[in-house]
């Protein structure tokens, strides 16, 4: 048995495996399959101040080796999340380590959500700030791809909470390391990447886009090599820890992310394929470390040899 525990930002995690925002609901959706306490953390879907409807249907389509989604951040809003039985109160009871993903349509809203969650922070271990969702016309895309706006968002959130702040970067930029540096400079405790890649698919029989929003975000195994490259570039650019994700569909993928520089990883789309995948990743890590006679998972971080 190798040591899977790790330090991430100011937190001690049981293991480096988390479930990615938007793929594991707001509460106990996966608790029927396994004990959520077994995860390093559960990262709930994006929350803003008010409830939001999200985009029209169809919101998803499958493509070779992945999927495109434009869910458009449907959600209950921060009040309901904090107080309705089946959201945070249920997660708290489950004993899971909870990171809350947040978003807004203005810098002020980001700060307000962060402050509201800070006030109700019992049961929340960290905030993940989504500046990268490509789906919401009013905001997301612009914050994550404009360095000045990104800096303002991070500063505003940093000023509004004592919780560790993880800034989730958009891959839809020319130089991702630059955004990593911006987040770090503005006080982020960690960065996470990648969110989905801008994408689109057309049904050639009907000549209509396969999702109603026309464009959406690509995720799944197809994006993994891009994500590995970006984690590697950020690892060389920042000192804060990296939460790596994008296409992880087996334990070996998680090891690859860690070798590229991720301290922890998130399983996203693969939860849809196999709800038990996060547990398989954890047991693979254990087995891999033993096989390579490595004592602690921490030794893998950025350990790629050149």
């Amino acid at each position: 048995m190798a040591d899977l525990s790790t330090s991430f930002a100011s937190l001690e995690l049981k293991n480096p495996v988390t479930t990615a925002s938007g793929t594991c609901g707001y509460g106990l959706e996966y608790a029927n399959f396994y004990d959520l306490k077994k995860l390093g953390a559960v990262i709930v879907k994006g929350i803003r101040m008010t409830p939001s409807d999200g985009n029209p249907m169809p919101r998803v389509c499958e493509v070779t080796g992945g999927m495109i989604n434009a869910i458009g951040l449907q959600g209950p809003g921060v009040d309901a999340f904090l107080h309705d039985d089946h959201y945070l109160p249920a997660l708290k009871k489950s004993g899971a380590t909870v990171f809350v993903n947040i978003w807004g349509t203005s810098i002020g809203e980001y700060a307000d959500v962060a402050a509201a969650l800070d006030a109700g922070s019992d049961g929340i271990s960290a905030l993940e700030v989504n500046i990268s969702c490509p789906n919401v016309k009013a905001g997301g895309a612009a914050f994550g791809t404009d360095g000045k706006l990104a800096a303002q968002v991070v500063r505003a959130v940093r000023g509004a909470t004592r919780l560790p702040v993880i800034v989730k970067l958009s891959p839809n930029v020319a130089d991702i390391a630059e955004f990593g540096r911006i987040a770090e400079a503005e006080g982020a405790d960690a960065i996470s990447l990648i969110n989905t890649l801008g994408a689109m698919a057309i049904d050639i029989e009907t000549r209509r886009p396969k999702i109603a929003n026309v464009t959406g975000g690509l995720s799944g195994p197809a994006v993994k090599p891009v994500a590995i490259r970006m984690v590697y570039q950020c690892f060389r650019a920042v000192k804060v820890p990296i939460l790596g994700m994008g296409g992880i569909s087996c334990g070996a993928d998680a090891v690859e992310f860690m070798l590229a520089g991720a301290t922890a990883v998130s399983v996203g789309t693969a939860n849809f394929t196999d709800p038990l995948l996060p547990l398989n990743v954890i047991s693979f890590l254990d087995e891999y470390l033993d096989r390579h006679r490595i004592k602690s998972v921490r030794e893998l971080v950025g350990a790629m040899e050149q």
Partner: peptide, 16 residues
């Protein structure tokens, strides 16, 4: 009959 991802309420991909 809507397209589904997770099938268990986690993704909001299947709404009506």
């Amino acid at each position: 009959d809507e397209i589904m991802c997770c099938g268990v309420g986690a993704c909001f991909g299947c709404v009506v």
